[in-house]
Structure formats: structure tokens, C-alpha cells
């Protein structure tokens, strides 16, 4: 089994010391920068020493670090680099079943591209993490250099929860509860899928693969129905989208489960949606997943670097 999402708590910043240049090593100590733990999860939820489950042949490790929350792009880029080198030394070098995620500082597209280029020759890295929430929708052209380099190096782009950096998580301002935040993530994913398709980012990068991590899946069918309808009506606004959005999504996007944000008895119905069975990837962790999905075959489609 290929585990496409083995989540790992961000290490304390002190653990990155050996992987930082002297200036940044001094900075984090002098300024008391200790933690990159993100705010969108229950405290202490992510495991520090996760183990691939029984029968796991490959597992893609994803450190949960809120690099994007820092407003200084040089600091963010330095910590992202340190985290990536730490991941290599502490995880990828120690277990041949593990594959890595490249953490970048999305504050600077230039720095993100440089970091991806720096690590691309290490074939154990199979994806680049981008936060669900950033300063600009992911489809906008300022992000395209990241997609260029990912497509060139056969790296998937993984959009993962988090990224409390600018706008409120809802289109109507800041909610009160974590419950609203978690429910609201599905609206944030809908916006990003819409942006990636309509801006033409996927059309312009036919080799690009996008994985939506821990996104839930039930929101996708109604979104594609609405998008296809709106595209029929207003496609003159986006003439580069030359086919229904649902086709673009099915060709280029995958979603990890569990969690499935549906009750058990709705799982078969979910798979009845066109293309859904081919879009699901297996994440480790607790919770039911639909039967009748060839998760490993899907994973090798989503992650060209896993091979066949």
C-alpha cells in the first residue's frame, strides 16, 4: 500500500539548527523562534514519530509547519530549507519506504522556485507543499513559475490545509470557532480548484499534477456541476479554458482519504460520480475509505516520481 499522506508534527525550530546557515542559526536563538506549529489543528494532534502502517510499501511524509505564517520571506525561506534538509537527514535517510514533501516559502515565488530546484535532483522528494490559504488564489499567474518547475521535474503540487496569512477563511469574515474553520476548509478548497482551472494554470501545464490533501471529497461533485454550468454561460471571459472545468479537474487533480467527509452509507454514491474513483489517494490514518478503488494505481498517476 502507498500511503500518500503521512503527517508529521513540525519539529521544534531548535531541531533545525544543524541545517541552518550561521546567521539564521543565531537569529532563531537570539529571537526565541521556537515553533512552527500551525494554528488550524487541534493542539498536539499531529504525531511526532508517525510509523507507516502495516503493509505500507511507500509513504509520503508531510511535515506540518506554518512557514507561510511568517511575514519575512528570507526568514521563511531559510526555515523551509532547514526543514527540508532535516526531513532528508532524520526521515528519508533512515527509512527507504519514505518519500518526501518539499516545503517552500510561498511568500516569495522566487525563493520557492530556487528551493525546488535545489532539491529536485533528490528523487525521494515527490511533491511540493502549498498552503490552502495564501495571499492570492493559487491559479493566479504570479504562482506559475512554481508550476513550471514542478512540471519540469515531475513533482506534484500538494495543496494542504492551513495558511492563515491574509484573508479570513470565509468570504464573509472571521469565524469564532475551530469547528467553523474546519468546515470552512472545504469552501477554501473549492475556491482554489476554481482558481487553478479558470486561470488556465492547469491547461498551461499539462504535465502538472495537483493533490488536495485532507480536503474531504464530498464538496467536489456539486462544485463541478456549478462550474460546468457557469463555464457554459460565461466562458468568453476565460477563452483559454477550452473544455468543461470538470474534465480539467479529472485529468489533473487527486484527493486524499481518509478523512471522507460523508457518512459510511454515502460512500458508494460518492464513487458513482464520474471520475471520482480514479481521483482518490489513500492516506494513512484512521477512518473508512470507499471500497473498489485502486489507490496504488491512482498514486502512481498522481506522483510520477513513484514510478510504475
Amino acid at each position: 500500500m502507498i500511503d500518500c499522506d503521512l503527517a508529521l508534527a513540525a519539529p521544534p525550530v531548535s531541531a533545525l539548527r544543524d541545517h541552518l546557515e550561521a546567521y539564521w542559526r543565531d537569529s532563531v536563538r537570539e529571537r526565541g523562534i521556537r515553533s512552527l506549529e500551525p494554528s488550524y489543528e487541534l493542539p498536539g494532534r499531529a504525531p511526532r514519530r508517525p510509523e507507516p502502517g502495516p503493509g505500507t510499501t511507500l509513504a509520503i511524509v508531510r511535515p506540518l509547519a506554518a512557514i507561510e505564517a511568517l511575514h519575512a520571506e528570507d526568514l521563511a525561506a531559510a526555515l523551509a530549507g532547514g526543514l527540508n534538509d532535516w526531513l532528508r537527514a532524520e526521515w528519508l535517510d533512515r527509512d527507504p519506504r519514505l518519500r518526501g514533501s518539499i516545503t517552500v516559502a510561498p511568500q516569495s515565488v522566487e525563493a520557492a522556485v530556487a528551493e525546488i530546484e535545489r532539491l529536485a535532483s533528490d528523487r525521494r522528494f515527490v511533491q511540493v507543499l502549498l498552503p490552502l490559504r495564501g495571499l492570492h488564489p493559487l491559479g493566479r499567474r504570479l504562482h506559475w513559475p512554481i508550476y513550471d518547475v514542478c512540471a519540469r521535474h515531475a513533482l506534484a503540487v500538494a495543496v494542504r490545509p492551513g495558511g492563515n496569512v491574509g484573508s479570513a477563511i470565509t468570504p464573509v469574515g472571521w469565524p469564532s470557532h475551530l469547528a467553523e474553520d474546519l468546515a470552512g476548509q472545504s469552501q477554501a478548497y473549492q475556491s482554489q480548484v476554481t482558481s487553478l482551472v479558470l486561470e488556465g494554470a492547469l491547461g498551461a501545464h499539462p504535465a502538472l499534477r495537483v493533490v488536495l490533501v485532507a480536503s474531504g471529497v464530498t464538496w467536489l461533485p456539486s462544485l463541478t456541476w456549478r462550474l460546468d454550468k457557469n463555464w457554459k454561460g460565461v466562458r468568453r471571459e476565460v477563452p483559454w479554458v477550452d473544455r468543461p472545468p470538470s474534465e480539467v479537474i479529472r485529468r489533473a487533480m487527486w484527493l486524499t482519504v481518509p478523512p471522507v467527509d460523508a457518512p459510511l452509507d454515502a460512500l458508494p454514491e460518492l464513487l458513482a460520480h464520474e471520475g471520482m474513483a480514479a481521483m482518490l489517494l489513500r492516506a494513512g490514518g484512521q477512518g473508512p475509505v470507499p471500497d473498489g478503488v485502486n489507490f496504488d494505481a491512482n498514486a502512481r498517476q498522481a506522483y510520477p516520481r513513484l514510478g510504475h
Binding site: L132, R133, G134, L135, H136, P137, L138, G139, R140, G163, G166, S167, A168, I169, T170, P171, V172, G173, G184, Q187, A188, S191, Q192, T194, S195, L198, E199, N230, W231, V234, R235, E237, V238
Partner: peptide, 13 residues
């Protein structure tokens, strides 16, 4: 507030 949680999209669509 932007209609997306990642800021302003480009299009009416």
C-alpha cells in the same frame, strides 16, 4: 472580504 480565503480571484466567473 475577498470571496476566496486566499484573496481576490480574477474573474466574474
Amino acid at each position: 472580504h475577498p470571496i476566496s480565503s486566499s484573496g481576490w480571484p480574477s474573474f466574474y466567473l
